[in-house]
């Protein structure tokens, strides 16, 4: 700010008589700039240190470890070259784990978004009592993966659980929610949609409330039906929020771990073995830090690709005002 007025150039055109005083002011200007420079880094330092120690360095070390064989204590035992990767790409477990992750994403993300949109639209256009409903639909924000998973584990109990009891009342036979390989991923997804339903709702409600009411009203006066107004006007206007939510939800789905670890431990028969669970299993159950790191790098690359694809492909179709 101040330092700019004392630039070197102005010092050069000064007469010799004023040179001495000019030099001191150049000096103090430089000092000020240096101080400012230093201060910038002092303010950044706390965050920077944490990022370097717990994000950048581990990122590099993950890449390094993925080319190594390690002993159970995490020390590098031998250079493995690309072995970890070739083994991984040749194993059917890896591909099935990848596919399960994609399936899990497809089962949770679209349903979550549609449900959030439905609840938010209904709450927004409800008159009396909308506050109560808003509170109810926001409640899942307080849930955690630990508490929600335990609750559903009890609900899912095959013989004594409430869900099978209620289904029995309407004549549907007991479902082996968590022990049938064909049902387990669906059960985990159902619980995940419930647990995560607060976030899309809150975000979409805020977005709907921020829409220009005049546009909505004039379209209604024009005689457009509720559904047409919704699909041809509201939805395009909400697309930036939906787009953001899609990105965040897909990333979340790819990083799911807690509910899998508590409800199924990747089973039965590997049917819920999502990517992050397989990282955990390799590194912290089998103590294969090298192959675990290779899996982690795959996760990282996938996340980068996902972000890039979403911004390139979807980004164009999103309506920004």
């Amino acid at each position: 700010m101040n330092s700019q007025t004392y630039s070197d150039k102005s010092g050069q055109v000064l007469s010799p008589a004023s040179a001495v005083s000019a030099r001191t002011s150049i000096h103090s200007g430089r000092l000020k700039r240096l101080r400012e420079q230093l201060l910038g880094y002092v303010f950044l330092a706390p965050s920077l240190v944490v990022f370097i120690l717990f994000l950048f360095y581990p990122m590099v070390r993950s890449v390094y470890l993925s080319f190594q064989l390690t002993d159970p204590r995490g020390r590098v035992a031998a250079y493995a070259g690309l072995d970890n990767y070739t083994q991984m790409f040749q194993s059917s477990d890896f591909w099935s784990s990848l596919w399960i992750t994609v399936e899990f994403t497809l089962l949770t993300v679209p349903v979550g978004l549609i449900l959030g949109l439905l609840c938010a639209s209904l709450v927004h256009s409800a008159g009396r009592g909308s506050k109560i409903f808003r509170f109810i639909f926001s409640l899942p924000l307080a849930l955690s993966v630990g508490t929600a998973s335990i609750l559903w584990m009890i609900l899912y109990h095959p013989s004594l659980g409430m869900l099978n009891y209620l289904l029995g009342q309407i004549g549907i036979g007991p479902i082996q929610w968590l022990t049938d390989p064909g049902a387990a991923l669906g059960s985990v997804s159902l619980m995940t949609v419930w647990m995560n339903s607060g976030f899309p709702f809150v975000l979409l409600l805020a977005a709907i409330q921020g829409l220009d009411n005049d546009v909505m009203d004039s379209s209604r006066i024009d005689g457009a039906s509720m559904w047409r107004t919704f699909f041809s006007i509201k939805l395009p206007l909400l697309s930036p929020t939906l787009f953001f939510l899609a990105v965040v939800s897909i990333m979340n789905a790819f990083q799911s771990f807690g509910q899998i670890n508590i409800l199924t431990r990747g089973g039965p028969a590997g049917s819920t073995d999502v990517l992050v669970y397989s990282i955990y299993r390799e590194a912290f159950i089998n103590y294969q830090f090298g192959t675990g790191s290779a899996l982690a790098i795959v996760l990282f690359v996938l996340m980068l690709l996902l972000t890039a694809i979403q911004f390139l492909v979807l980004g164009k179709k999103v309506h920004y005002q």
């Binding site: 717990f54 581990p58 990122m59 993950s62 470890l65 990083q255 675990g292 790191s293 982690a296 996340m303």
Partner: peptide, 11 residues
Amino acid sequence: MIPWEVTIIPN
């Protein structure tokens, strides 16, 4: 952009 799970082993 760095998922926490990717850094979890070195951390």
